[in-house]
Computed example of a mutant assay.
Amino acid sequence: MSPGCDVGEDGGADQVQVFDTLGRETTSFSVGDAIEYLLVDEAGQLWAGYFDENPIGIRLWSAEGRLVWTSDGARIPGLFDCYALNVSGTVAWACPDMDFPLVEIRPDRGRTPYGAAHAVAVHGEQVAFYGGYGEEQGRLAYGELTATSVEPTAVGVLTLPDGTRPGHRRVVSRESRIYVQGEPFAAWHVFDLNG
């Protein structure tokens, strides 16, 4: 049996209380004001959906009250106002304001196991990350999407057809492709994860 969660009536401190299977309080914490939805996922994390009085959107809290993820930087239009929220496993589904799209939120999957990347290609359950900082500028890292994460599978270096690295370049990604244009910016080269 998983721990339970109770939410207090006021927006003050310790409005969330977490209990163990014997009914003993293990911790308490605050998740803020203007809460429309509170749902616990199968990992025991708390998803909070906020309405526009407090334009936060959605936040994910650990069972200990640590902020795990927030929609603040998610670049999803209208996610400041959560109209609907559902949790399945460790994935959340939401309908935010601004035309009410259905949004799938997988915070763990959003983290790359390779750090920074300047382009990403996705094909089915395969993913490739291109670029990075410093010595990893030409890195091409492969992974496989799982239900909750990206599992690393291989790392290499992206080279142009003549065997050289692009150097200073422009990069655009779309579906399974990464488009790279190196100096003197006269031609585009295409890496396709699907072929």
Rank of each mutant, 00 (worst) to 15 (best):
E25H: 06
T27C: 05
S28D: 01
F29K: 04
D33V: 06
D33P: 08
D33K: 04
A34K: 11
E36N: 02
L39S: 03
L39K: 07
V40F: 13
D41Y: 12
E42W: 05
E42Q: 04
A43N: 12
G49S: 10
G49Q: 07
G49R: 15
G49T: 06
D52E: 06
D52T: 11
E53L: 10
N54T: 15
I58N: 04
R59C: 13
L60V: 14
W61R: 11
S62V: 02
A63K: 00
E64N: 10
R66Y: 09
R66I: 01
L67A: 14
L67Y: 14
V68P: 12
W69S: 12
T70D: 08
T70F: 02
S71G: 07
I76Y: 08
L79F: 11
L79K: 00
L79P: 03
F80M: 06
D81C: 03
C82V: 00
Y83G: 02
L85R: 04
N86H: 12
N86W: 15
N86S: 13
V87M: 01
S88G: 10
T90M: 10
V91A: 11
A92G: 11
A94K: 03
A94D: 00
A94I: 05
A94C: 06
D97V: 15
D97C: 14
F100W: 10
F100H: 09
P101A: 09
P101Q: 06
L102S: 03
V103F: 11
E104G: 00
E104Y: 01
P107F: 05
P107T: 07
D108M: 09
R109Q: 10
R109A: 07
G110Q: 08
R111A: 05
R111P: 06
G115Y: 05
A116R: 14
H118T: 11
H118F: 07
H118L: 00
A119Q: 01
A119H: 03
V120P: 00
V120I: 04
E125I: 15
Q126S: 13
A128I: 14
F129P: 09
G131D: 07
G131I: 05
G131Y: 09
Y133E: 15
E135F: 04
Q137G: 11
Q137N: 12
G138T: 00
R139F: 00
Y142G: 09
Y142C: 04
G143Y: 12
G143E: 07
L145D: 01
A147Q: 03
V150Y: 06
P152H: 11
A154F: 14
A154R: 15
G156N: 03
G156W: 02
V157T: 02
L158P: 08
T159C: 05
